[in-house]
Structure formats: C-alpha cells, structure tokens
Design a protein around this nucleic acid. Structure first.
Length: 491
RNA sequence: GGCGGUGUAGCCAAGUUGGCUAAGGCAGAGGUCUGCAAAACCUCGAUCCAUCGGUUCGAAUCCGUUCACCGCCUCCA
C-alpha cells in the first residue's frame, strides 16, 4: 500500500499522488525572525524534517522550500526597542535559527527564501490581484477583497458570516469588509520601505508565501505544511491570494502539526509559558528532544514535561547501550562458527528482514512515527535477547545477523535523525554531562570502585556494599560486568 | 456565540475509511543472571477503549445523547 496522508483541506486521509511521478514539491512556513525559537518551532520543523527525509527515502526527489519572514510588525517593533536596524535583528535571528536547527540535526531544505529578497515578485502578484479585481487600493495600502473569492474559508471550514460573527479584532475602517487583509502596507516614516506602484511601503504577511511558493514550486504544488495555528488566517489567505492570482488550485495536500503543550495548555509567547530550544538543549541531548517530539503522532498535541523527557532519555540510552553492545560484538574476534537456528536467532533474523517494510508501512499511514519507534524498540529488545542467549557466540554466522541489524538501524537513523552518533561518543557525552551536574569527579568514582573491588576480593561484602551505597547517594550506579565494574549516572 | 479536536491500563501513548490475540514505553510484581545489586532477558496488566442509547452477523473504530478537557475565530509552529 502506498503513502496516505491526512489532508487538512478535505479532513480525511487520502492516497498521496504527486503531480509529477517520483517528485514532490513541498513548502513549509518558516519562522518570523525576531526572537529565538521555542520548542514549538522545534516540533514543527522536526516533523517536516522527518517527512522530508521519509519522502526521500521512499525514492521521491523532493524540492523542499522553507521561508524566513524577515519583514513584519514584530521585527520592526523589536528593532525600535533595541534601537537597531531591522536588518541587524533579522540577520541575528536567522543565525540563531540555523544554529538551533543544525544542533537538532535537521537537514537543510532545498531553498530557504527570504521575504525581503522577493519584493518585486510580491509586487507583481499584488498587481495581478488588483488587475483582476481581487484587491483594492486605499491611501497607499492594498487590501485583498475576501468577497471576491467565493471559496474563502474552505480550509478552516468556516463561512464568512461565521468568521465575522466571531471577529474580535478592531476593524480598520478603510476596509470594505472587516475580513479583508493587507497585501501591501504604506510605510510609516521610520519603517523599512520599498518602492511600489502604490507608493513606498512593505508587503503584508501572507503574500510572501503565495509568491515564493509559486516562484520555486509552481502555481500548483504537492504539499504545504505548517503548525495548526497557521490554518487561519495565514493559510486561508494564502489560498485566496494564490488561487485568485493564478486561477489554479494552490495546494493538493495541506499538512498541519499539533502544538506542544505545557501542563496540557498550548505553549505560546503570549502565555509566556514557552521554553526556548537553547534552554531545553542545556538539559537534554538533541536526540532526546528529537525522539521525544516524534514519539507522538504529528497531528496530536504533545505534553512537554520533565518526566516525559526523562522517560525518552531512558529509552534513547537503552538504544545506545544496545548499539554499543552491537559494536563490541561486531568488532570482537570470531570463534568457531555455530549454528544460528536457536529461537532468539530466528526471531531476530526475521525481524531484521521485515524491519524496513514495517517502518514503511507505519510511515505510509500518515507518517506514523509513534508506531515506527515501537518497531525500533522491538528490534532493540530482540537484539539484546539474542546477544544474551546462552547459545550466542561471536562467529561468522552471528556477525552476519548483527551486521544486518546494524544496517537496518542505519536506515532508521537516516529517516528519523536519531541514533546517528557513535554509541561510545553518545554514552561518554552523557556521562560527562552527568558528572558536571552531580559534582563528583571521575577519578573519585574510580577510586571508590577500586576500594570496593578490594573489599569484594577480600569477601568483605558489607564494606563493598557501603561503598556502592555511597556512590548511589551521589547519583552513580555501578554495574559489575565480565569486563570489570562500570559506572553510569542515574537518569 | 460559531467552528474543530480529544477522552484507550497507575502514567505517557498507537490504533478510530468496523472484523486477526486493543502496539510500544514508563512505573509496579515475580523470575533468570549476580556474593548481593545493576544492566539485559523472560512472565504478569484493560473481557474492555469517558457516558448512555442505536445501526450491524460483528464497533474502541459508524450514528445520536450526555459529561469533561483542549484548540481556532487576535500575532503565533
């Protein structure tokens, strides 16, 4: 079965059929660059990053466009507050955004256009809308006339009457209809401005996406994404602008991700209950954040709590612990070849063989990352079971099985962007992070481990256990293994 | 007020275009291993999917009722 996606426009899952076979054109609304990004931005961008990666792995050639809104009221306000030019603000926050996204291991989109670099294109779109009678000019402002577009409201499934009834915003008296929105705004003296047929001004918010998506992806393209909060008015207005200016259908599939909640409430700037990506990354490894954000279905809300993040960290650690074991076995010296026909071997071999098909099945069902992760856990468990089975030994046959597992995990990592580190690097990084928090040095730990080893050698278990308890009180847990005693931090 | 979404084991959560044993994780219990632990592995949990009623041979999944929570209608991923 092929890919099926939930389309916000039709409100149902549909078979995904690209306009051009084997190619996908996708546009995702990016950020307005006036502040650092919060974890909600992380979710939206990670969700579409995984979709981008998955489509590529499914064999599509994907053109992925994600914009930067670098001219906007909020930017102007921020610039005025700081007494700096807008350009300085946007340059800084574009850099901050790129830093955050690269730490979270997001792939670069194919094109990242900026609004201010497409002003002439936007002016052309607006001109067309005015010529076709979908927009009107008042005192240097250009407004889109929603009444000129009979399908206005189709994405948010509301009629204009309903929208008007709920309107809570102060109405600009100059508009013909309160729902009309600005395509071009006459600029005030200190604001950034560009020449236009209507005088000096700047573009409205929505026009950039209509213009830039058409420029890079064509009048009609396959996927348009963004957060649920953009459905109205942003995406509704994009549809109106684009379909009126081109006379063609704008987008075939609309995808919207759910919110990140804090204590079950939407996280937002106005509620001041947000966490920035940088703050979160101080506490958690980037892959923990990624794994957490893809552990739910992308359309569902996800509750951002310390408890949930810690649980995810425990799961990721378990995966890396298995990867480390896998790495050790694969590089260990081979013994005499042994039959791989015991239960644990057969089960793992079967799972490894069907692994990618199962992932594909899950992802083909509207990008079900939650199920994908459950499939990963199953592979991890079966691998651990295999390696710890009494019949297991390192030999040509077992290396072949483990090599197959490793290969599957690499494919998994390519799609989901987690489990991409060398396990030793990941685990030692976790250890040193923990040490700095626990306030105990590694040499102290090793000294105590030696002390305990001496006591154990003397069969003085009371003293050995006392040493271990002391370490537990410091948040250090010991593991006695065939290769000696190892330590790790309590999660 | 209008529109939309959600309600599944102690907790997180998938499944919701009706039909194999209701995924997976955390916590918990027992076991294997261990001097004892830890890790890993094994076993155990919802006769039931907010509520009431209906459709059907068959529903967590469809229809209607009630209750609760959330989002959008304002900048917002």
């Amino acid at each position: 079965m092929g890919l099926r996606v939930y389309n916000s426009l039709t409100k149902r899952k549909e078979e995904f059929v690209p306009i051009k076979e084997g190619r996908v054109n996708m546009y995702v609304c990016g950020v307005t660059v006036y502040d650092v990004c919060h974890i909600g931005h992380a979710r939206a961008n990670i969700v579409f990053d995984v979709i981008y990666r998955y489509l590529q792995s499914a064999g599509y050639e994907v053109k992925y466009v994600r914009n930067f809104t670098d001219i906007d009221d909020k930017i102007i306000n921020r610039a005025n507050e700081a007494g700096k030019p807008c350009r300085e603000i946007t340059t800084r926050y574009i850099k901050e955004f790129n830093d955050d996204m690269s730490r979270l291991n997001l792939k670069k989109p194919t094109i990242e256009p900026r609004a201010t670099q497409h002003i002439p294109d936007m002016i052309n779109t607006i001109k067309t809308l005015v010529e076709k009678g979908h927009a009107y000019v008042i005192e240097g402002n250009v407004f889109f006339s929603v009444e000129s577009f009979s399908e206005y409201g189709k994405l948010s499934s509301r009629s204009m009457d309903e929208l008007l009834a709920g309107a809570r915003v102060a109405v600009d008296e100059r508009k013909r209809n309160p729902l009309d929105f600005a395509l071009w705004k006459a600029s005030k003296p200190s604001e950034p401005k560009w020449e236009s047929p209507w005088g000096e001004g700047r573009p409205g918010w929505h026009i950039e996406c209509s213009t830039m998506s058409a420029k890079y992806l064509g009048n009609t393209f396959d996927i348009h994404g963004g957060g649920k909060d953009l459905i109205f008015p942003h995406h509704e207005n994009e549809i109106a602008q684009s379909e009126c200016s081109t006379g063609q259908k704008f987008v075939n599939y609309w995808l919207h991700n759910g919110f990140v909640n804090i204590n079950s409430e939407k996280m937002s700037k106005s509620l001041k209950n947000f966490f920035t990506i940088k703050d979160v990354l101080k506490e958690y490894h980037p892959e923990v954040v990624r794994m957490f954000l893809i552990s739910n279905h992308y359309r569902s809300p996800i509750d951002f709590t310390d408890n949930n993040l810690r649980e995810t960290k425990g799961n990721l650690d378990r995966c890396y612990t298995m990867l480390k074991l896998l790495k050790e076995k694969l590089s260990a010296k081979e013994g005499a070849d042994a039959a791989q026909s015991f239960d644990a071997a057969k089960a793992l071999k079967g799972r490894a063989a069907s692994f990618m098909d199962s992932i594909k099945e899950a992802m083909n069902d509207d990008f079900n990352t939650a199920v994908s992760i459950s499939i990963l856990f199953e592979l991890v468990r079966l691998t651990n079971r295999y390696i710890s089975a009494p019949e297991f030994s390192v030999c040509a046959g077992s290396k072949q099985i483990l090599g197959a597992v490793k290969e599957r995990l690499n494919s998994f990592a390519d799609i989901f962007g987690i489990l991409t580190y060398d396990p030793d690097a990941y685990l030692s990084e976790e250890k040193s992070e923990a040490l700095s928090k626990l306030g105990i040095s590694e040499s102290d730990i090793l000294k105590l481990i030696q002390e305990r080893a001496d006591a154990r050698r003397d069969k003085d278990f009371a003293r050995a256990d006392a040493v271990r308890d002391k370490l537990i009180n410091h948040g250090i847990i010991l593991e006695d293994t065939a290769q000696g005693t190892k330590w790790k931090a309590k999660t």
